[in-house]
Design a protein around this nucleic acid. Sequence first.
DNA 1: GTGGTCTAGACCACC
DNA 2: GTGGTCTAGACCACA
Lengths: 118, 118, 118, 118
Amino acid sequence: MLFDQSNPIYIQIGELICENILKGIWKEGERLPSVREFAISMEVNPNTVNRTYTTLQEKNIIFNQRGIGYFVSPGAENMVLQMQKEVFIEEELPRIIKKLKLLKISLEDFTQLYSISD
Amino acid sequence: MLFDQSNPIYIQIGELICENILKGIWKEGERLPSVREFAISMEVNPNTVNRTYTTLQEKNIIFNQRGIGYFVSPGAENMVLQMQKEVFIEEELPRIIKKLKLLKISLEDFTQLYSISD
Amino acid sequence: MLFDQSNPIYIQIGELICENILKGIWKEGERLPSVREFAISMEVNPNTVNRTYTTLQEKNIIFNQRGIGYFVSPGAENMVLQMQKEVFIEEELPRIIKKLKLLKISLEDFTQLYSISD
Amino acid sequence: MLFDQSNPIYIQIGELICENILKGIWKEGERLPSVREFAISMEVNPNTVNRTYTTLQEKNIIFNQRGIGYFVSPGAENMVLQMQKEVFIEEELPRIIKKLKLLKISLEDFTQLYSISD
DNA sequence: GTGGTCTAGACCACC
DNA sequence: GTGGTCTAGACCACA
C-alpha cells in the first residue's frame, strides 16, 4: 500500500475504510480486520491503525467490542455518505470551482474530462 | 492576512503569488515586494517569505537579481497556468471524479451546484 | 567537522552524504542518522541538517518515511554518480579545460601533476 | 552579459578582465573602460565595476591615475598567469583530481574528453 | 538597500 | 522517538 505525503497515514487508512463501506465491500455489522492484521497488510505501525480505528469510532462509523474487535456500525454506509457529501459540498466544492475558474476550465471542459475518465 | 491550518504558510503565500500572476495583478518582469516588506504586510517572519520566494524560484516562476530583488519570470503567467492545469487534471481531477461517483453526485448535480455558486 | 567558508554548510553536508553513498559507506535502503543526531555529530543546528535532507529528498537521493526517518533511495548510488558525472562533464570540465589552455598547462603537465598527487 | 549565481558579479567581471589580459586583448599600459562605460556595457551597477577595479588594483594587476582612469599594470600578463597558475595547482587541482577519482573518470577518459573539446 | 545563511528555541503532528 | 514549520534575531556578502 502506498501513501501520499500530503495526508497523515492514519487519515488515508480511514478514507480507505470509508470507501470500502460506501462500496458495500464491508457491510454493517461486519468485523474489521484486527489492528495487527491490518497493520501488517498495510505495512504500517499498529499504533497508526489504532489511531484510525479510534478516530472512526469517535465518528460512530465503527464500534468496538472489548476483547473481540471493531465492527462496522449499523447505518454506517448512510452516515458516511451524508457526512462526506456535506463536507464535500461545503468545503471542497467551493475550492474546486474557484480553481476551475482560475485555470479557465469551463463547465464544458469539465464535463468532457469527466466523460473521458469513464 | 489569514492563513488556514491545513497548509504551511510559506505554501499559502506561494499560492497567493501564483494567483496574483494568473490574475494579471503581478505582471511578468515586475519586481515582487522585498522579503522584509512582504513579511510585514503578511504579518509573518521574513524567513517564511524567503522560503516562499526560494521555492518559487526553483520552479522558475520568479527569479532573483542579486542585491536588487525578486522578479516575475518572463512567461510566468503561462507557465503557472500550464503547471497548475496539468497538476489539476492529472492528479486532482481523478480524485474529484472518483469522489463524485462514490458520493453518488451526478454530473447534473455538479452542474447545478456550480451555477448556484455564481 | 570543519566546513570551509565558500559554500553553505547545508550544501557541504549534502556533498558529504553523496560522497558516503558513492563510496558505498551508506548503502541503498539504509537509514540516515536522525536530524538531531546528525546535527550533534556535525556540531551544527538541526535546522541546517533538516535543510540538507530536504534538499537531497527533492533530488530523490534520499526519501522520508513519516515519523521514522530518512533513508537512502534505491538506486541512489547510481543516480548520484550519473548526476554528478553529468554536471562535471557538462559544466565543470569545459571551465577546467578552458582554464588549462588559458594558463598554458598542457595535457602532459596535467598528467604529471595527476600522478604526483597519488 | 550573463552572470552565474555562484560567484559574486564583481568577481566574475574581474575574471573576465584577467582573461582579456591573458589573451592579449588588453595590453599592458592600456586604459580600461571607465567605470560608467563598463557598467553600462555589462548591465551592472557602477558600484560593482568599481569594486572589481579596486580589487584588481589591490593585486597590482591594474593601477589608477586619478582623474584619468584605470590602466593595465606593466608585467600584468605574467603576474596574472603566475598567480592563477599557483591558485589553480594548489587549490583547484586537488579538488578536481579527487572528483575524477570519486566519479571513476580515469586519466584516459579525461584525455579523451579533453581532445573532444577542441 | 537586497537576499542568504545560520542559530536557538519553540510547538506541533505523526509514528 | 521522528521530521516540519515558524519565529526571533543575528551576521554576512553583495549591489
